[in-house]
Design a protein around this nucleic acid. Structure first.
Ligand code: MN
Ligand code: MN
Ligand code: ZN
Ligand code: ZN
Lengths: 125, 125
DNA sequence: TATTTTATTGCGAATAAGTTGCAATAATAC
DNA sequence: GTATTATTGCAACTTATTCGCAATAAAATA
């Protein structure tokens, strides 16, 4: 399954790259300047996830949000397990450069993390 | 809105109290020994949440899970912000007595947390 | 450049989780 | 016992996401 470059793919990655927030499918469809089918957006996003280009966050609303999340110092490198923040006032979700730390009981093997804190964000406080 | 005691309400709370795992609506419907309507189960669960009797976890699958989560030492008291663990092998979600700790940038006011780590649980490893 | 291969897309339909309106039921207060 | 109204069941609805399939168009090949 070799990947192909398409206008759709580039437009979505462009939008995500220039956004400070994680975006849902409908936010992408609203903000993008070309017409892309709903199913296609999901398929492109899922491919990005498979290729580790973006990562997916599931919020308390049960919806999927997608972000190209990079380290501050080293923008190429993606932080592995970091917190996300959902502002209840401006209704946005952002990646935070705050690592998820925990001391787990033996016998548990942690592979993935989906951590969303919610409240009032920096902009709204 | 005074609350009333009903067989439905008691059966659901009973099931949750005796479960070591967080349960979804369909798991409750499957495991309970009386017939309860889907909408009713959700309404009872949401009332429990409003009354702080149970708490809701949203997992990476976007589904809602409910648990009566208590401290080990002091079973009455509910831990505020703790991690949850989703086992990818046995497909269960459990509350862990592991507090969610973070050092957040100023300006963020954290009110709630929805943190689910996933991997292989103690039973399956 | 022309042809072939197959990844990608759009469309519509399907699935699944959760909610809501409404009338019937039943717990509790009086 | 009667009245009040919280709770329930049912069906319909909403919303998010996925899927099958045929059409399109990148990229590889000749
Ligand atoms: Mn992130
Ligand atoms: Mn819990
Ligand atoms: Zn905000
Ligand atoms: Zn397990």
């Amino acid at each position: 399954m070799n990947r192909r470059n398409t206008p759709t793919k580039e437009a979505i990655l462009d939008l995500l790259s220039n956004s400070t927030k994680a975006l849902s499918q409908d936010a992408i469809e609203r903000q993008i300047n070309i017409k892309i089918n709903r199913a296609t957006i999901y398929r492109v996003l899922n491919r990005f996830c498979d290729d580790d280009v973006v990562h997916k966050i599931v919020a308390e609303d049960g919806k999927q949000y997608f972000a190209v999340c990079k380290k501050c110092e080293n923008p190429q490198e993606v932080i592995q397990h970091h917190f996300h923040f959902r502002c209840l006032l401006c209704d946005t979700i952002e990646c935070l450069q705050v690592p998820v730390e925990y001391s787990f009981p033996n016998g548990y093997e942690v592979q993935n993390a989906n951590c969303v804190l919610s409240g009032v964000c920096n902009d709204c406080s």
